[in-house]
């Protein structure tokens, strides 16, 4: 059976959360909480209690960036110093640890930040085409609940939304 997606726009978090709770409790057969996406103008502080724990692997990228920054920073500096044969060292070490620690520290932060931002783009699925279910109202003051389901469950989902005072229901336009 073909899948379809609809979005219900609610006036507040409470109504939207009630609708999601009903889905969570299995009041819609064939639809699970994993099929639900919430769109909102702000991030609700208790969103995880409603939608459950969902992954956000950004910190792993940050850690990878920091480790890369330390490794690359120190390797780059020390290899540059080791190859810099023009300047006489005057008895000082070719690879001086104290000054390299300062620069390695800066490189650690720089790459940690760059990796973090990159991971946001990847994990948050930025720069992808917005679906026809996007509503400008979710950037103003309305809460959108998107449900992906079999076409057979469409009417029952609409009924559930209406029970929770949905303001508007939009169906995805198949391109």
């Amino acid at each position: 059976m073909s899948k379809c997606r609809i979005m219900g726009l609610f006036s507040d978090f409470e109504e939207a959360f009630c609708a999601i709770s009903d889905i969570k409790e299995g009041k819609l057969s064939g639809v699970s909480i994993d099929d639900v996406t919430l769109k909102s103008p702000i991030e609700h502080p208790e969103i995880e209690e409603v939608l459950g724990e969902r992954s956000a692997p950004v910190p792993y990228f940050t850690l990878a960036g920091a480790i890369f920054g330390i490794t690359f920073g120190f390797t780059f500096l020390s290899s540059a110093q080791a190859n810099f044969l023009v300047q006489p060292q005057g008895g000082k070490p070719v690879v001086p640890l104290p000054s390299n620690i300062v620069l390695t520290y800066e490189m650690m932060i720089l790459f940690a930040v760059l990796f973090t931002v990159t991971s946001l783009m990847v994990c948050g699925r930025f720069m992808t085409k917005r679906s026809s279910l996007y509503s400008e109202k979710v950037c103003i003051d309305q809460i959108g609940v998107i449900v992906e389901m079999d076409e057979a469950d469409l009417e029952s989902t609409k009924e559930l939304f209406k029970k929770h005072k949905v303001l508007e229901i939009r169906e995805e336009v198949k391109q």
């Binding site: 769109k39 991030e43 969902r54 950004v58 930040v113 946001l120 699925r125």
Partner: peptide, 23 residues
Amino acid sequence: MGWRGDDRQWRNFRKTYMLMACF
């Protein structure tokens, strides 16, 4: 960059912002 305001974006956005603040 295609911000849609969905929970996936908010979740990753919040973590990113907090991590950047820490650094």
